[in-house]
Design a protein around this nucleic acid. Structure first.
Length: 288
DNA sequence: AAACAGGAACCAC
DNA sequence: GTGGTTCCTGTT
């Protein structure tokens, strides 16, 4: 894997295991959208475009310096997904799911943004979640311009902590407005220390996140997997419950049972297994 | 127009 | 700790 600077970006040469469609459509992120031949995302205060071209990945609006301090980590490029897929493919069902979603990578997203995003995700579908987050960023974030288009950053904790409930409601988040404000206040005043939590072992970190208003077991697992490098986290939503019941367990399994089963079966790699299974289940409408 | 989809809070036991 | 009910809003 070699990085080459081009006009306004970078080429990551012959990278394995990275497909933008799989990575950005597998339910882990909400601020990436298809634009032309690739995906444009807002990450921190930057806009970046990702395009797949043959064996390479093109990053537009990216510098080599940002690659080293930001993008390498964000796209999880130091991790060997070939190894992970090799181990998981010993299971025939996962082998199938991996053949289908071979280019999924688990992004290392910002814990604060991930926390609020997945509070919004509760009892909601992906397209609506994206719309709500977009509304919130438009109202409370900073404006960024790139190539004649306007984008907005995700707001800071104290901004949302001071937001009016009715303004948040205006972003179409419904009853989650109260949760967003309450949790933002906890982060802003230090009641919740996200950096500290990300350094805790899985079980403790999970327990700690449940203190946040609007965060239950599933949302906590999403935050741990998508922003705190807890590869053993296994978020159980309806799709995962369906696919697990369909392939492995009998009907009526509780999330608790499903998590115990996957921890036993997939161990440290449970979160990666979850992503391949989720993407496969949702695209193929397994168990519906 | 009414049904539906989607996790957590809250309250009973 | 488990089970049932309620909470919003965009889509069908």
């Amino acid at each position: 894997m070699k990085i080459i600077a081009i006009g306004d970006g970078l080429i990551i040469k012959s990278i394995k295991d990275f497909d933008p469609v799989h990575t950005f459509e597998c339910g882990q992120c909400f601020r990436w959208n298809r634009e032309g031949e690739g995906y444009v995302g807002i990450v921190g205060n930057k806009v970046i475009k990702v395009v797949a071209e043959d064996e390479d990945i093109l990053l537009y609006n990216a510098t080599m310096e940002d690659y080293n301090i930001l993008w390498k980590k964000y796209f999880d490029l130091d991790r060997d997904y070939g190894d992970i897929k090799g181990v998981l493919s010993n299971d025939p069902i996962l082998a199938k799911a991996i053949t289908y979603g071979w280019g999924i990578r688990i992004l290392n997203q910002d814990p604060w943004e991930t926390l609020i995003s997945f509070i919004i995700s509760a009892n909601n579908g992906i397209s609506r979640i994206k719309g709500i987050i977009e509304n919130i960023c438009k109202l409370y974030g900073d404006r960024i311009e790139w190539k004649g288009r306007t984008y907005y950053t995700f707001p800071k904790p104290d901004t949302l902590a001071n937001a009016k409930i009715e303004d948040l409601r205006g972003c179409s988040c419904g009853y989650r407005a109260e949760y967003i404000k309450a949790t933002s206040q906890m982060v802003a005043d230090g009641t919740i220390d996200l950096h500290g939590i990300s350094n805790m072992p899985y079980e403790r970190a999970h327990k700690e996140l449940l203190r946040c208003m609007g965060v239950g077991p599933k949302v906590a697992d999403c935050i741990l997997l998508f922003s705190m490098e807890k590869g053993e986290a296994f978020p159980v939503d309806v799709w995962v419950r369906r696919v697990m019941e369909y392939f492995y367990l009998k009907d009526g399994a509780t999330p608790k049972k499903i998590k115990a089963f996957s921890a036993e079966k997939f161990g440290e790699l449970a979160g990666y297994a979850q992503q391949y299974l989720f993407y496969y289940a949702r695209e193929k409408k397994i168990g519906v």
